[in-house]
Simulated scan of single mutants.
Amino acid sequence: MLLGFRLLAVVGAMALGVASSAQAKPPTTDAERDVAMESLTWRDGQTLNLPLSGGVLKAPSGYRQLLGKDAATVYEVTNGIDAPVGTEAMIYNGKDGTIVYYQKLGSGYIKIDDWPSIDPDAMLAEIKENTERNNATRKQRGIGAIHVVGWLQPPRLDLGNHSVLWTLDAVEEDGSSLVNSVALVLGRDGYERLVWIGSKDQFSGML
């Protein structure tokens, strides 16, 4: 169901927090992963209160939702690596298989003017390095590697929406296309990180 999707590790360059394991013993086989997924509290098309940011998450019919530890567990089951600190929700589109993760980060009011300048080349190099390093853990847990190709959309500031946006192009071990489109939404109490995950064709269809 969800096992074809992975989330690229984004660590260091953007200082987005260290990992925190939700699974005491991560599954290493498809059978164990299926059991872990079935044990979660899935919600369907509901209006939910996010546990960390206090925001509201609305989803139409056909979208499945997870909150808190359950969202972190899905991240770990499908990625083979620890979920980032602050993972507070996940939405799964049952029609096309795309996923969105929600992560609460930081505290206090963050102005767009406070955001540091971003070096796209250095950021991409660090993402590639961390992704390749995480591939060793994925292999140990029976999950294929991910390789970052480059930017589909380099990092940019969206002043109107007080956000930072970027999109990464990657491939899975079997050659399947993988896209991560990230939005950091700055607010009065830290910021929210949203990561959309799908294929390149699906991403192109949204443009």
Rank of each mutant, 00 (worst) to 15 (best):
residue 98 T to G: 03
residue 98 T to V: 02
residue 100 V to R: 11
residue 101 Y to L: 12
residue 103 Q to N: 12
residue 105 L to I: 12
residue 105 L to Q: 13
residue 105 L to M: 10
residue 106 G to V: 05
residue 107 S to D: 12
residue 109 Y to V: 08
residue 110 I to W: 06
residue 111 K to I: 00
residue 111 K to E: 14
residue 112 I to E: 08
residue 113 D to F: 04
residue 115 W to Q: 13
residue 116 P to I: 11
residue 117 S to I: 06
residue 117 S to M: 11
residue 119 D to F: 07
residue 120 P to L: 03
residue 121 D to S: 15
residue 122 A to S: 14
residue 122 A to I: 06
residue 122 A to Q: 13
residue 123 M to Y: 09
residue 124 L to N: 07
residue 127 I to L: 07
residue 127 I to D: 02
residue 128 K to M: 07
residue 129 E to G: 01
residue 131 T to E: 13
residue 131 T to Y: 05
residue 132 E to A: 11
residue 137 T to L: 13
residue 139 K to C: 00
residue 140 Q to G: 00
residue 141 R to H: 13
residue 141 R to A: 02
residue 141 R to P: 02
residue 142 G to T: 03
residue 143 I to S: 01
residue 144 G to F: 07
residue 144 G to V: 09
residue 145 A to G: 09
residue 146 I to L: 10
residue 146 I to E: 10
residue 147 H to E: 12
residue 147 H to N: 11
residue 149 V to H: 01
residue 150 G to K: 07
residue 151 W to N: 06
residue 152 L to V: 14
residue 152 L to W: 09
residue 154 P to Q: 15
residue 155 P to H: 06
residue 156 R to P: 00
residue 156 R to F: 12
residue 157 L to A: 12
residue 160 G to Q: 12
residue 164 V to R: 08
residue 165 L to I: 14
residue 165 L to D: 12
residue 166 W to Q: 08
residue 168 L to A: 03
residue 170 A to T: 01
residue 171 V to R: 14
residue 171 V to F: 03
residue 171 V to E: 10
residue 171 V to Y: 06
residue 172 E to S: 05
residue 173 E to R: 05
residue 174 D to K: 12
residue 178 L to I: 04
residue 178 L to M: 13
residue 178 L to W: 01
residue 179 V to K: 07
residue 179 V to A: 08
residue 180 N to K: 03
residue 180 N to W: 05
residue 181 S to L: 01
residue 181 S to E: 08
residue 182 V to C: 06
residue 183 A to N: 12
residue 185 V to K: 11
residue 186 L to A: 09
residue 186 L to W: 06
residue 187 G to A: 11
